[in-house]
Amino acid sequence: MKMTPPLLVLGGSLIFGVVLFVVVILPWATMTDQPSDIHRPRTALEERGRKLYVKNGCSYCHSQFIRRIDWDLGAERIAQAGDYIAEQPHLLGTERTGPDLSQEGGEHPDDWHMAHFINPRYVRPESIMPEWAFLGTENITALIAYKQSLGYKDADARMQRQRLWKPKSIEAYEKGTDGNVAWLHDLVPEPWRKLPNPYPTSQAGLTRGHRIYQSFCIGCHGPVGDGMGPAAPHLYPPPLNFTTLKGRGVSGGILYYQIMNGITGTAMPYFKRDLESEKIWDVGNYVAVTFIGETDANTEPRGIDASYEPADGEKR
């Protein structure tokens, strides 16, 4: 084969054109333009937030599609082509330095997001996301509106739940400590309330709890557990002050349930995807021993001891 400029240019163009047709134009022409069951149009504010997301390169760290193998996200809704019919440009992303955001809407209330955008480490102490305070409150508000729309109708349902519980939590907070604690305990099912922490207090357990507290809790509840962490000024109702809870019947089961499930409407997220069972018992007991000043760890009813636990009455 003798290579000449016309052969190179024309032959090359021909091949390029054929491949472009097969791998780009054909999918473009044949793929669905029907919206999926959760799709809805975005509002003007959400659209503005999306533009900021595009301008500032959020998609270099956050993907926007959930895969079948994404156990950490629960894989409760696998991405469908119909979710993306209005996306221009696409924001699928290729890196997960931060979490996937395609179903982020309604996971947290707006005030949590405000604190998080001003400085992500206020609410997620080990985050490596940049601070976005320089965008200004107005822009951050638009970005929050966009984030709360991710997941479309599913997000709307979650947002509705946030909005339902927010006023109730504020009302309870404004009643003072007694009223607030009573309301918080009411959110926990009866059997959990009566459940003591099944594991005895040990130095190792407290050390583990301390480590978890620093990774997850310190931003809001503060280093001394008084609810005065750096995020506190941005959150309402403010984070719970543990130091006033002695003698108010905070059981290991209540702590476990609230950490696992979060308190929807407030900035307290659920941690069931981040933490497994032992870690939740440990951090709960750390809070009880260190900040509340009393613990029900290893009290009746306690059932059979785990094999590693020290024998009855024995101190470690």
């Binding site: 472009l20 791998v23 780009v24 209005a86 221009q88």
Partner: peptide, 15 residues
Amino acid sequence: TGSITGIPDGILAWF
């Protein structure tokens, strides 16, 4: 926008 719409935009962008 320098892009087309939807999943086909992802396909084009990675092409």
